[in-house]
C-alpha cells in the first residue's frame, strides 16, 4: 500500500461518521505515524449527505485539502449510492467498504467497479441495533475498516473506541460499541 493512506468516508449527518474518522485517526497514531481527520464543513443537518476524510502516513502530512483520490472509500449508508458518486476520484485499486445487507458482488456490479478494486460489505446497521439498540453504524464500520485495510489492529482500535466513547456514554453503550466494532471486524465480507 502507498506511503500515505487516504480515506474518504460517506455518511449522513447524525450517523457518527465524523466520530468514526476521529477515532480512526487517534487509533492510527501508534508507531509514530502522522494522522489527519477532518469533515467537509457545510450546513450541518441531520440526515444530509456528508464526507469526512482521513490521512495516515509514516511521513509528515502537509497536504491540507480534501482527499481527491482515496485509497479507501467507506460508505456508512448505502442509500447514498443512488445520489452521491462514491467512486469519484477512485484509484484503480481503491478499496470500497459498504454498510449494506447485500453481497460484495452485487455492490461491485452496482458501482461498476473494476476487478482490481476490492469490495467489502457488512450489515453495520443491523450489528449496531443488535449490540446497542441504535442504528449508528460507525463502530462496526471502524471494525470493517480495520479488517479490510490492516491500517490499524483490532486491539488498538478497540482501545480508542473505549477511550472516545468513554467520555460521553454509559458503560452499557461503551460495551455495545466495543462488541459492534469486533463484530464489524469479524463479519465484513470480501468479494
Amino acid at each position: 500500500m502507498a506511503d500515505t493512506i487516504e480515506i474518504r468516508w460517506h455518511g449522513r449527518g447524525g450517523q457518527g461518521t465524523v466520530t468514526a474518522a476521529k477515532v480512526l485517526a487517534d487509533a492510527c497514531l501508534s508507531g509514530g505515524r502522522y494522522v489527519q481527520a477532518f469533515p467537509e464543513y457545510g450546513p450541518e443537518r441531520s440526515g444530509a449527505p456528508l464526507r469526512a476524510y482521513n490521512r495516515v502516513s509514516g511521513k509528515e502530512l502537509r497536504m491540507h485539502c480534501p482527499v481527491l483520490h482515496p485509497n479507501v472509500v467507506a460508505i456508512a449508508d448505502a442509500t447514498l449510492l443512488d445520489g452521491v458518486n462514491v467512486a469519484e476520484g477512485a484509484k484503480e485499486d481503491t478499496i470500497f467498504i459498504i454498510n449494506t445487507a447485500k453481497d460484495p458482488s452485487y455492490m461491485r456490479a452496482k458501482l461498476k467497479l473494476s476487478a482490481k478494486q476490492k469490495v467489502y460489505t457488512l450489515d453495520a446497521t443491523k450489528i449496531a441495533i443488535e449490540c446497542f439498540g441504535r442504528a449508528l453504524p460507525n463502530a462496526p464500520m471502524l471494525g470493517a475498516v480495520s479488517k479490510a485495510t490492516a491500517i490499524v489492529g483490532l486491539d488498538a482500535l478497540l482501545e480508542d473506541v473505549r477511550k472516545s466513547f468513554g467520555k460521553k456514554f454509559a458503560q452499557k453503550i461503551i460495551d455495545g460499541n466495543l462488541e459492534a466494532t469486533k463484530r464489524g471486524y469479524e463479519e465484513v465480507k470480501e468479494g
Partner: peptide, 8 residues
C-alpha cells in the same frame, strides 16, 4: 482547515 481538523 486547521481549527477544526484533527492532526498529529
Amino acid at each position: 482547515i486547521i481549527s477544526h481538523s484533527i492532526e498529529r
